[in-house]
Design a protein around this nucleic acid. Structure first.
Length: 590
RNA sequence: GCGCUCGUAGCUCAGCUGGAUAGAGCAUCGGACUUCGAAUCCGAGGGGCGGGAGUUCGAAUCUCUCCGAGCGCGCCA
């Protein structure tokens, strides 16, 4: 039950009536106006800009927006759910709803429980790809942000009604995994008792490869020692990638991040009967005249040292909105990352995903245009790719930036942070911020678990609400506190301003879900929960000065029951929102 | 030089896809626990949204242009 969408439809019907009777032009787009809560609560419960939006088109029929507004107000007044409708300001319509409407909303929210606010199932298959960290080492805090954002976004879209698949693209092809293999081979020799000394320049020095080397030694013994690289590279690489992915999956699990599909880049390069998926894609594009051999103009400004003008295999991404055409082949004849990424996105399309979301770090921002261009090209414009960029995270301790250096030993891994402060705090902290805003992640603040961290504020509201139920159970022996029982309470007795404010916020939840999903901004849910928690804490404290406002009142059983129904709804909305964010809703904080 | 993201209160950030007097937390100052959990609450001061121009009935939100920050700029992924 979404009263805003509901009234959007009712007002739309009124406008349609005016169009049918010739009092408005017949071709108005009914999606143009909005119904939202007014900024000032004193203006009423709903506000719509409908008269101002159509003012220009309505010129011949109405001389000004206020005139049209009063006409619509007149029609609205006939609606039994409307207590009052009036024109205000330049032509707003402010609507005050009958108390019954909110009683119904509250009851509906209690009956729906955790399902309250869930959107209708849509048929669209949606693919959300996130994390996709290279399997060459442990994840850092920046990866964590993308992981948390992608995971919460997927939860949000799912709750809003989409059919979501969560996917991880394993970058297990290219030179970097060969470097990984060589690094792991050193650790293998080390595990067999060899003195390997300092890790040579260009290899990964971290200790995290020691277990991989040791595991390899257990599996194959000394059989690879002394062999040329060509004979061991593939074995070691496969083993090392598997070890890194196992580590990454553990780290993700610790952050409560899950994927359904892990897709290997290497599989796209694999040739069956001499042809790989990438070969096929490039050939397709070439057949359509979108691939050619040509020269690229050098970048403006500072030229790279090793720039040489040469002919290469290019994709005409500029025909689909990119700035220049992009290379598909490296000089050594291998495909570029872009080429395999085209084949990867084609795979998603072939698997039925016409709606794709990729979550990337901001350092890949320069890559967005070519990828969206490629998706348009390979799907004939049928598929849509939306790339959400997460700004990189600056790790800070007490306001001072922590310089990270793998070699210097000051590298802070995501896992270390999660183990220290908990997944809930990390997740909420990262979601309490727009994804495209830079984030200073202050270790000291999060580790302190101070009240600076909003996760405790929201969780505390939930725990506090639960404590009311414990209180109620001991005050009223045998009371039935189930949703089904509380929904039967006479909710019309809830008349206090603070109570009504809470009910109105609960009424907004479905709208918040819908808007956040449409904008693909899970942080809105975090902010909404913070506001809801704040309203609840405020109302709670009113009960200090005015005991008659407390939720549990021994003398007034019926009133208490209605208030407990409100608390029930409140806890379920908070728990619902927190579950979208992937944060626990504890019954107590102790 | 070009592209992307961003500039809102002393600090950290929201601002519901263009709406009615720009909000919150922290910090500062002053208050509230024999009372359903004070990890909480109430109050005060503080900005006119980086500068300028434009579109609009109406702009922090859209356009242009400067200034500033971050990221990126064949053959890395």
């Amino acid at each position: 039950m979404n009263i805003f969408a509901d009234f959007q439809a009712r007002i739309g019907a009124i406008v349609q009536g005016l169009m049918d009777s010739g009092r408005l032009p017949a071709d108005l787009d009914l999606a143009r106006f909005t119904v939202e809560p007014p900024r000032e609560a004193s203006h009423g419960d709903l506000a719509t800009n409908v008269a101002m939006v159509y003012a220009r088109d309505a010129k011949p029929h109405f001389s000004n927006p206020r005139q049209m507004a009063s006409e619509i107000c007149f029609a609205l007044a006939a609606d039994p759910d409307v207590a009052q409708a009036e024109t205000a300001g330049p032509g707003f319509i402010n609507i005050r709803l009958a108390p019954k409407v909110f009683v119904d909303v509250l009851r509906a929210s209690i009956e729906a429980g955790g399902e309250y606010g869930r959107g209708a199932r849509t048929a669209t298959k949606m693919n959300v790809e996130y994390v996709s960290a290279n399997p060459t080492g442990p994840m850092h805090v920046g990866h964590g942000r993308g992981a948390v954002f992608g995971d919460a976004l997927a939860n949000l879209l799912d709750f809003a009604g989409a059919d979501v698949t969560r996917e991880y693209y394993i970058n297990d092809a290219g030179a970097q995994v060969d470097v990984l293999a060589r690094s792991a081979f050193l650790r293998y020799r080390e595990a067999l008792g060899e003195h390997i000394g300092a890790i040579p320049e260009g290899l990964y020095p971290g200790d995290y490869l020691k277990p991989a080397g040791a595991a390899l030694a257990r599996e194959v013994g000394a059989s690879l020692l002394g062999k040329p690289e060509g004979e061991w590279l593939e074995t070691v690489r496969t083993q090392a990638i598997a070890a890194m992915m196992a580590m990454i999956r553990e780290d993700l699990a610790a952050l409560k991040v899950e994927h359904q599909v892990f897709f290997s880049e290497r599989s796209l390069h694999k040739r069956v009967h001499g042809v790989s998926d990438i070969d096929r894609q490039v050939a397709d594009l070439r057949a359509r005249g979108l691939v050619y051999e040509g020269r690229l103009p050098p970048p403006k400004g500072q030229l790279p040292d090793d720039w040489e003008d040469r002919e290469q295999t290019l994709f005409r991404s500029s025909e689909y909105g990119d700035d220049v055409d992009r290379p598909l082949m490296k000089s050594d004849g291998a495909y570029t990352y872009f080429a395999s990424d085209i084949a990867y996105h084609k795979s998603k399309i072939d698997r039925g995903f016409l709606e794709m979301i990729d979550v990337w770090g901001a350092d890949h921002g320069g890559y967005v245009k070519r990828m969206t261009a490629a998706v348009k090209a390979i799907s004939d414009g049928k598929a849509n790719l939306d790339v959400r960029l997460c700004q990189l995270v600056r790790l800070v301790r007490d306001g001072v930036e922590v310089k990270m250096s793998k070699r210097g030993g000051t590298f802070v891994t995501l896992r270390e942070v999660v183990d220290e402060v908990g997944a809930d705090a990390v997740r909420f902290m990262m979601l309490f911020r727009k994804n495209d805003a830079m984030l200073d992640f202050d270790l000291a603040k999060v580790i302190e678990q101070s009240k600076d961290n909003p996760v405790f504020y929201v969780q505390y509201a939930h725990a506090r609400a639960k404590s009311i139920f414990r209180q109620a159970a001991s005050t009223f022996a045998g009371i039935d506190l189930s949703g089904a029982a509380l929904a039967q309470a006479d909710l019309a007795v809830l008349r206090d301003e603070g109570e009504l404010e809470l009910i109105k916020m609960i009424a907004q939840y479905p709208r918040q879900i819908e808007a956040a999903a449409q904008a693909r901004e899970p942080h809105r849910i975090a902010f909404f929960l913070h506001e809801l928690a704040s309203a609840f804490h405020s109302h709670w404290n009113r009960g200090k000065d005015s005991p008659q406002l407390r939720f549990v009142n021994e003398e007034r059983g019926d009133l208490s029951k209605a208030r407990l129904a409100l608390v029930f709804s409140l806890t379920s909305v908070i728990a619902s929102g927190l579950s979208i964010l992937g944060v626990a809703a504890p019954d107590e904080m102790r």
